[in-house]
């Protein structure tokens, strides 16, 4: 088991193993026999391996739940919900800023300086960022765009959504945890039967077909 020490430590520390963060171990986790071995090891800690629906991210779940653990999961859920709005707003902001036709996903590369410059030049984006920085998740006292974005990125890095391959470079890679978050959002949307408005573009498409 010794060769899986770092992997186990990462998982036990609450890490999400995805292709971006740790491609080597992510590949190892595709092996069912190994997963069983790891589950055996984790059993006394009341933990087991779990993954998102498509197997893109691996993390640890409780093996057996009792009331205390359920309560802590409830608290976790409340925290997630608190950060939902800022996270979705941020994803929208990045998409609007880069002009991309799709939502932020794993493997996307973001350049912080580049983003800051674009936001700086657009009053509406600047205001969106400002607003984002009043949320509990991204609280920032900074007045300027660069400082605000720096803090936002730092928070995202801490939370495991971004990876900074080189400390001195401003390139950040989006990790698979963002897909996990979206899967969670999808679950809530379906569970609570939230009607999604069709985008104008989609309506146009419907007219065309």
């Amino acid at each position: 088991m010794i060769q899986y020490g770092p992997l186990l430590e990462d998982l036990l520390g609450g890490g999400f193993v995805c292709q971006v963060r740790d491609s080597h171990n992510h590949e190892r986790l595709q092996n069912e026999a190994l997963r069983e071995q790891l589950d055996q090891y984790l059993r006394p800690l009341n933990r087991r391996l779990a993954s998102s629906a498509d197997g893109a991210v691996w993390y640890l779940a409780w093996l057996e739940l009792n009331q205390e653990l359920r309560d802590s999961l409830s608290q976790q859920l409340r925290d997630t919900l608190d950060s939902l709005m800022p996270m979705l707003t941020l994803m929208q902001l990045v998409q609007d800023t880069t002009g991309s036709d799709r939502v932020l996903s794993a493997h996307d590369v973001l350049n912080r300086h580049d983003l800051a410059a674009r936001i700086e030049n657009n009053p509406s984006l600047r205001q969106q960022l400002q607003q984002l920085c009043t949320t509990r998740l991204f609280q920032s006292q900074s007045e300027d765009t660069g400082g605000q974005l720096k803090l936002v990125f730092e928070r995202l890095r801490q939370q495991g959504y971004l990876l900074q391959p080189h400390k001195d470079r401003q390139h950040f890679v989006v990790t698979g945890k963002i897909d996990y978050l979206l899967e969670l959002v999808r679950f809530i949307q379906e569970e609570e039967r939230i009607q999604l408005d069709d985008e104008p573009a989609a309506q146009q498409e419907a007219l065309l077909s």
Partner: peptide
């Protein structure tokens, strides 16, 4: 939304062990 953690069957997505 509902408190999924208190359901008999906790949806797998929401069962995430505390970091150790």
């Amino acid at each position: 939304p509902g408190d999924y953690a208190q359901r008999t069957e906790v949806p797998p997505l929401f069962n995430q062990a505390r970091s150790l």
